[in-house]
């Protein structure tokens, strides 16, 4: 469990990046910070591994104030994945993943064995192990970044817009992969994005932030969608534009029992099955969510 207690960050140039922020981030769940550019998401995230120290307030991990933990030691126990992968360009893929282990003096053979396993975990072919980051695609680099983040087997994984720079198809793949990892490895993931769809997709808990990391709303995606706390939230999640309010298209007839749904703008938004003219119902259960484009994974859990 990570707890922010009245945390503020005032940068030297006078920017109030974070203003009196308090929240509890539960263990083994994914918490997403979402908000527009400059609202303080990265600052919040980097305070967890002491890349940034708060001006006031305290951050506790499992009840221990991290201000009392030596930053280097703390960082070695927390995975960190950033937007542009941040890989060391002069080290091979396998060395990049193993670097974290070398830092903690894990013997070479063991470190490489673990690094190879991690390539499997993040869905990278082992034949890429000897390549340099510059010889990988953006999506592959991000996978290596995730593998490196997982190398030390940390309980906490911080991800700062990790899929912001990859194309939509690869992003969907990586998002699905992240959800699978979370399910399989049971990590506490703190994820930063400015994409509300990504936030709703990945988050068990979502925090919508305004400037100064002011919490506009906190809750599960369902809670937020059902009950936007303010006009700001409604606008941020697209509810005000009717993007989230779907109706059945009366004109188009889809095949079988499916009917087409349209949003308030009149754009096609999806399909729903309606056997015998009765719309299908289900119950929200975030853990079972999967959007992989691989059919074998669709609807699992």
């Amino acid at each position: 469990m990570i707890e922010f207690k009245s945390v503020s960050k005032l940068y030297a140039d006078g920017t109030h990046a974070v203003d009196n922020f308090s929240v509890v981030i539960p263990s083994r769940k994914t918490t997403v910070f979402v908000g527009s550019s400059g609202c303080g998401k990265t600052t919040l995230l980097r305070m967890i591994n002491r890349m940034v120290d708060p001006t006031s307030g305290a951050i506790e991990i499992d009840g221990e104030n991290i201000a009392n933990t030596e930053p280097v030691h703390l960082r070695r126990g927390i995975g960190y994945v950033m937007q542009n992968s941040g890989l060391l360009p002069h080290r091979t893929v396998i060395d990049n993943v193993a670097t974290v282990l070398f830092l903690t003096k894990v013997p070479k053979v063991e470190a490489y064995a673990r690094a190879n396993e991690l390539l499997d975990t993040v869905g990278l072919d082992r034949s890429l192990a000897k390549r340099y980051p510059g010889e990988l695609s953006g999506g592959q680099q991000q996978r290596v970044g995730v593998a490196r983040g997982l190398a030390a087997n940390p309980n906490i994984l911080l991800m700062d817009e990790p899929f912001g720079a990859v194309d939509p198809i690869v992003r969907i793949d990586l998002q699905a992969e992240t959800m699978r990892l979370q399910r399989e490895l049971d990590k506490t993931i703190v994820f930063v994005t400015h994409d509300i769809d990504e936030a709703f997709l990945l988050g068990d808990q979502v925090l919508i932030l305004e400037k100064g990391a002011k919490i506009a709303q906190r809750g599960t995606p369902e809670e937020i969608l059902a009950n936007p706390a303010s006009d700001f939230v409604a606008s941020f999640i697209g509810a005000d534009r009717g993007k989230r309010r779907l109706t059945v298209d009366s004109k188009v007839k889809a095949k079988g029992n499916d009917v087409v749904l349209i949003d308030a703008g009149g754009y096609a938004a999806g399909v729903i099955s309606a056997p015998g003219g009765k719309l299908a119902v289900g119950s929200a259960s975030p853990k079972s969510r999967s959007v992989s484009n691989k059919t074998s994974q669709a609807g699992d859990g």
Binding site: N49, M51, V72, G77, M82, S85, G86, L88, V100, L103
Partner: peptide, 8 residues
């Protein structure tokens, strides 16, 4: 920055 963040 990344090198520092992974604990160097």
């Amino acid at each position: 920055d990344a090198a520092r963040a992974i604990g160097m």
